[in-house]
């Protein structure tokens, strides 16, 4: 199970479906609505899937606000079954690459406001103290970040955060949480944050020439 910019990617391997469903349910319960709005891609890697298992999977995901978007990598018979349930059996490469969904917003998030989006977010404005910006993918803030920003919220540690002035209460990337040092360092400059190992690294955001 892996978080992506838009939701989850499941690789059930050869485990029995009821085991897979149980593990998935536990994961979704523990996440308390975190994945709401996300899309799920299942990679069968050659194994088959029975209509009952497919329906059970879909029902479980929908109960947690997720969409079963695509079931990939089955043989021709499996692909027919998948399509018969109205689910994609194939995804164009570029769509899988970019995830497709992105949000562009021109506003300031004020205290008590929360923006949640299952994809990349570009915000032209500030994230004020007490505001929360949560994205499944990357986050770019053309402004000041003083509240909370969470990128890769579905668990994608490859997600990044960029801001002109990154001075947040807290930064999160996937399951990692970072807090800025108590003392503000130096002058304001554009910065970016990414995960390395189990830590969030913040560094100057420079355009290479």
């Amino acid at each position: 199970m892996k978080g992506t910019a838009e939701g989850l990617r499941l690789r059930p391997g050869q485990r029995p479906w009821d085991e897979v469903l149980q593990a998935l349910e536990e994961h979704l319960e523990a996440s308390r609505g975190f994945f709401r709005g996300g899309k799920v891609v299942v990679e069968l890697e050659g194994r088959g899937v029975e209509p009952e298992a497919l329906e059970a999977l879909r029902a479980l995901l929908e109960a947690h606000g997720l969409t079963l978007w695509a079931v990939l990598g089955g043989d021709e018979a499996t692909a027919r079954t998948v399509r018969a349930h109205g689910i994609r059996a194939q995804v164009p490469a570029e769509e899988e690459e970019t995830g497709g969904a992105a949000l562009f917003l021109r506003r300031t998030l004020r205290s008590g406001q929360r923006l949640q989006f299952p994809g990349d977010v570009t915000l032209v404005g500030d994230v004020n103290p007490g505001a929360e910006l949560v994205a499944g993918g990357n986050v770019l803030v053309w402004g000041r970040v003083r509240g909370l920003v969470h990128a890769g919220a579905f668990g994608d540690r490859g997600a990044m955060i960029w801001a002109l002035d990154l001075n947040p209460a807290q930064l999160r990337i996937a399951d990692l949480i970072g807090r800025p040092p108590e003392q503000r360092r130096g002058r304001v400059r554009p910065e970016r944050a990414y995960a390395e190992g189990d830590r969030i690294i913040v560094e100057a955001w420079r355009v290479r020439k």
């Binding site: 998030l109 004020r110 205290s111 008590g112 406001q113 004020n128 103290p129 007490g130």
Partner: peptide, 8 residues
């Protein structure tokens, strides 16, 4: 902070 909330 509260003023910001009210403005929002």
């Amino acid at each position: 902070r509260d003023a910001d909330r009210v403005i929002g």
